[in-house]
Design a protein around this nucleic acid. Sequence first.
DNA 1: GAGATAAGTAATCATTCGATTACAACATTC
DNA 2: GAATGTTGTAATCGAATGATTACTTATCTC
Lengths: 212, 212
Amino acid sequence: MSSVPQIIDSSATAAVPATRMPSDERRVLVLEAATAVFGQRGYAGTTTDQVATAAGVSQPYVVRMFGTKEKLFLAVLHRALDTLMAAFRRALAEESDVPVHSRMGMAYADLLTDRGLLLSLMHGFVLGSDPEIGKTARAGFLEVYLFLKADVGMTPEEASDFLAHGMMLNTLVGIRMADEYDTNPDARELLETAMPTKLGLLRGLTGPDKIQ
Amino acid sequence: MSSVPQIIDSSATAAVPATRMPSDERRVLVLEAATAVFGQRGYAGTTTDQVATAAGVSQPYVVRMFGTKEKLFLAVLHRALDTLMAAFRRALAEESDVPVHSRMGMAYADLLTDRGLLLSLMHGFVLGSDPEIGKTARAGFLEVYLFLKADVGMTPEEASDFLAHGMMLNTLVGIRMADEYDTNPDARELLETAMPTKLGLLRGLTGPDKIQ
DNA sequence: GAGATAAGTAATCATTCGATTACAACATTC
DNA sequence: GAATGTTGTAATCGAATGATTACTTATCTC
């Protein structure tokens, strides 16, 4: 009957983890989940618990895996930039009758299928005042610009215009203009003008994921 | 000697407010301060206390004046859109030898002097998933698109391209590319390509306000 | 100049959130 | 099959933050 001095807490039950997995694999899943959530809610608007839930793990695990929320966001940005550059390099190497500029544009639009990737980048771009995020964002943006000039062979004007249309696409996605496609003829015209080829891709992405 | 039941607290001293002012005027000051802070840190990344400090008033006053932080941000977005449309209408009405497209572009770039205005808009644009913010952002974006077509006389392609370059400018500002102008030749080339005329404006804005 | 109204603050509260700590259980190696 | 490292969780904590409450004081009106 004497109270056994249990070390700290006896009621620890530790719910069964979903499935065990090498940390490298889990890391990828968490990064993908984080990309989707950060893309939708932005850096400050996202909680580590939302990321954890989306990834199917516990909140402390997410934090321990990346150290801090900021480091997690930086990892998301780096993954996004790596994915982007890989897609561009693939499109450049590919043999095709399609002009290389168009191939680049299509490769960019195809990144829409990686949920939140372009929007996470965009959130990073508009947070340039943050020392760490800004550094990564500027370096990534310039890397793409240089690639377009040096590897693709664009002039500065062509590269700048290409990037401008990329920012436009990001904005149209972020603002969810496709939500108005069916009901607003102006939205429809704008979408069909700004992204004539890949509209189907964008429209397929809207609807089911209106999380908030 | 009997303890006088003071209502709740006797030590209220109420520091002297900076200066008294009609609430309409104060409202404008708070909106301008909020625009600057939201532009730099985004919606979720901004605290009502940061806005209050920037405006020189107390945090509760900011909240009571606008009801909630979200309503404050929506007011910032509406003010930004009103300012933008007014600038466009002025540029359109103005007599000049400069082609109307260029005048619109210059009017847009001139908005850089209203600190945080374009970036607050941009933060709103990428938060389209939020029900209230998204609604306002889409309506504002489409209002501009329609103005460019109906009043300025642009084709859908011209209007879309114009908006694309606007998004590019917003991004270059948000990412603080001008911070690298002096040290990175590629950043310099990109800035001079993307915004040849109004570069001075942008550069004048960097440096002193690296708040964080 | 008294009363009413408008403009403002200090104090404080309930939540939320990132981070830390203390464990638990599976897998690997010897 | 014990020791050990790896993968994971529950509980909890302190700081931050939006909002509320209770006052205070300047200004306007009659």
